[in-house]
Amino acid sequence: MPDLSAFPITKRWPPKHSDRLQLYSLPTPNGVKVSIMLEEIGLPYEAHLVDFGKNDQQTPEFLSLNPNGKIPAILDPDGPGGRPLGLFESGAILDYLAGKTGKFIPPHSARRIETIQWVHFQIGGVGPMFGQVGFFNKFAGKEYADKRPLQRYVSESKRLLGVIDRRLDGRQWIMGDGYTIADISMLGWVRNLIGFYEARELVEFDNLKHVPVWLDRCLARPAVQRGLVIPSRPQP
Rank of each mutant, 00 (worst) to 15 (best):
residue 5 S to R: 13
residue 216 D to V: 01
residue 84 P to M: 03
residue 172 Q to A: 13
residue 214 W to E: 03
residue 89 E to Y: 01
residue 139 F to H: 00
residue 173 W to I: 06
residue 33 K to S: 10
residue 199 A to V: 06
residue 141 G to E: 00
residue 13 W to R: 08
residue 24 Y to M: 09
residue 132 Q to K: 02
residue 218 C to T: 00
residue 172 Q to N: 13
residue 183 D to H: 08
residue 201 E to N: 13
residue 17 H to D: 14
residue 24 Y to F: 15
residue 126 V to H: 03
residue 11 K to E: 15
residue 61 E to L: 10
residue 207 N to W: 08
residue 147 K to I: 05
residue 126 V to P: 07
residue 126 V to C: 06
residue 10 T to D: 12
residue 52 F to C: 07
residue 74 I to R: 00
residue 233 R to E: 15
residue 70 K to I: 12
residue 137 N to F: 00
residue 140 A to E: 00
residue 103 K to S: 07
residue 169 D to F: 05
residue 41 I to S: 08
residue 234 P to A: 06
residue 223 A to D: 02
residue 164 I to H: 07
residue 199 A to E: 02
residue 25 S to Y: 09
residue 54 K to R: 14
residue 181 I to M: 04
residue 50 V to R: 04
residue 163 V to K: 08
residue 18 S to R: 11
residue 155 S to I: 00
residue 15 P to I: 01
residue 205 F to C: 14
residue 70 K to H: 10
residue 185 S to R: 04
residue 65 L to W: 04
residue 114 E to G: 09
residue 120 H to R: 12
residue 96 Y to H: 07
residue 48 H to M: 08
residue 224 V to H: 02
residue 89 E to Q: 07
residue 166 R to F: 08
residue 9 I to N: 10
residue 152 R to L: 02
residue 47 A to P: 09
residue 78 D to R: 08
residue 132 Q to F: 03
residue 8 P to R: 12
residue 57 Q to C: 11
residue 157 S to P: 08
residue 22 Q to F: 06
residue 222 P to K: 01
residue 36 I to E: 02
residue 219 L to M: 13
residue 207 N to Y: 10
residue 93 I to N: 06
residue 64 S to E: 08
residue 172 Q to E: 14
residue 194 I to V: 15
residue 39 E to L: 09
residue 204 E to G: 15
residue 203 V to Y: 08
residue 21 L to H: 03
residue 174 I to W: 02
residue 47 A to S: 14
residue 21 L to R: 03
residue 38 L to M: 05
residue 117 Q to V: 04
residue 208 L to F: 04
